[in-house]
Each structure stands twice: as C-alpha cells, then as structure tokens.
Amino acid sequence: MNQQPAAQLATQITLDITWHYSATEAMSRFLAGLRERRIEALRCDGCGRRYLPPRPFCGRCCLRMHNWVPVADMGTIEAWTVVHVPVLDSRTGAPRPLPYGMALIRLDGADTTLNHYLDETDPAELCIGARVRAVWRDEVVGAMDDISHFEVLR
C-alpha cells in the first residue's frame, strides 16, 4: 500500500429549494402589527408569561393561548455581545458589516427576550440592564427586521 493514491474526485452541487413557510395564526397577527409599528405578545393563562414570539401554545403549562397584551418598543438588555464573525443579512444576502452589537432584549411588557442588533459595538459601552429603544425602518413590511436595530439609551 505504498502506492500514492490517485487524485480523488470531488463534485460541487448547489442546493436550490424554495420552501413556502406558513406562519402560525398568532405570528400572522404579530407581523401585521409590525406593519403599524405595534408589538403584541400572547399571555398564558396558566403561568402568566407574556410570550414573544407569540405562539399557539404554552409548552410549560400545555395550554393554548388567546390573550394578547401590548408590548413597548423599548426594553432592557438581558445579554449582549459584539460579533466579529460574518453572518448573512437575510434581506440582501450579503454579509453584515463587522463588528456588530447583538443583544437579548426584554421589551417592556414581555417576559421572554428577543434577539436583535444594537447600534453600539464597543464592549466598554455595553452592560446588562442598559435601556434600549427600537429604531424602525422607514419602510415596514411586517417582518422582524422592520426594526433595523436597537439604539442604546444613555
């Protein structure tokens, strides 16, 4: 077996599948709200948790949810980072400029947190507990990135 192996074949194939995703009824209402720059959460009658993203069913209590509650577009940073590795922008397909700030944000009126971009990229300027406000795009289409990012309030 001292023989040098012949150059091995490799092939490149591009995955080309278009998926048509259905939103839940709850998410459809939430996304419609975004078109009016309105954020709403679903509250569980069992545990009282106000869920973002809104969903049909509280997995903790095994109960369907029906009660909508208003949520502010301001909140508090619960976790943060500054990312230096590329991620693709889902609107353009191009890599996002580096670095970018990222946080888990608890919006006023919700109990879960939402992940979103920050306008701040200096770790010295970021901390858990900092207040942030949504910066909406001029054109809103009913998608999560209708909020372009969150502004850190000082």
């Binding site: 995703y21 993203p53 980072t81 889902s90 609107r91 970018y100 992940n115 998608a143 990135d145």
Partner: peptide
C-alpha cells in the same frame, strides 16, 4: 418569521 433575519450564528 422570528429570528432568521436577526441571527448572529
């Protein structure tokens, strides 16, 4: 609908 557009990998 939720986190695909605001992902950080």
């Amino acid at each position: 609908f939720w986190d695909r557009s605001v992902a950080s990998g």
